[in-house]
Amino acid sequence: MENRLISSTSPHIHKDISIKRIMWLVFFSLVPAGIAGIFLFGSNTLWIILVSIISAVITELLIQCLRHQKISITDGSAVLTGLLLAYTLPPTLPLWMVALGSFFAIAICKQAFGGLGCNIFNPALGGRAFLLLSFPKYMVRFIAPFGSADSVTSATPLVLLKEGNLQSISQIGLSYMDLFLGRRSGSLGEVCIALLLLGALFLLILRVISWHVPLSFILTLGITSWLWSGKNFACGDWLFAILSGGVILGAFFMATDYVSSPLTRKAQLIFGFGCGLITFVIRKWGGYPEGVCFSILIMNATVPLLDRFFPPRVYGYKK
């Protein structure tokens, strides 16, 4: 009979939790927001999502074949990267650019660093940053929701804010409810805040993600926007700052990425604080209307440092 005893050092308590399970849970919690995107921006959105996922999986498969590694495309990490990347793209992006961005995300942001678990930066955001820097014209071409097939381009609320001709959101015919439900132009997966929050709640309840990073991210952004984004001190529109752009998507689904976020709670709070602060700084003074992508990438770079300052407690040791 096969010896099925496993000898190992403590801890011996196991939990039925695996990479595969986590990745697919995150994937399914994101699906409703994507369906909302398809509903809002038309069928092209569906193609972008599919191309992004397929390109990510094929890239992962190819690289793992070439490097004679174990093929791990079924663990869902590549699928999730593709999905997250697609969610950050404008709904009019040509499909070959989507495929290229997805290739870049997997090949360079993930596999070049050594694959899953070794990447310093969030691959999906790396892919987005690559596309934003490479094809700036296409990456800011947003369309209004419920448009016709040849959809009308329309600036996102944040772009209008950046151009300085936006005093309050009612001026562009939007209410907070519209922002919350996603009736605005924007990247295809970031607009429907309600469904994103539903997915995030699902993950929080299942303890797939913790509240530390998202809370400190959103709180920091809200407070800094309230204090300094208005005409006078402490009269900024904090709700608008949180509901516009990709804050919710970034805070709950990207900044909480296991690989590229810090290990301990304290470090996660600082990580979220940095993300919020840099997002605010980019929005207020930077050249881009939205700063979530770059803020998370910049804070990703500080993670090794944060992990060194706040090392996780070794099992069995007291402080």
Partner: peptide
């Protein structure tokens, strides 16, 4: 070819890194 990022600073670092590798 249209990949603008290669003409920006990140492109230099990427190219150099991959050539070295």
């Amino acid at each position: 070819c249209g990949i603008l990022v290669m003409l920006l600073p990140p492109g230099a670092l990427l190219t150099l890194g991959f050539l070295m590798g």
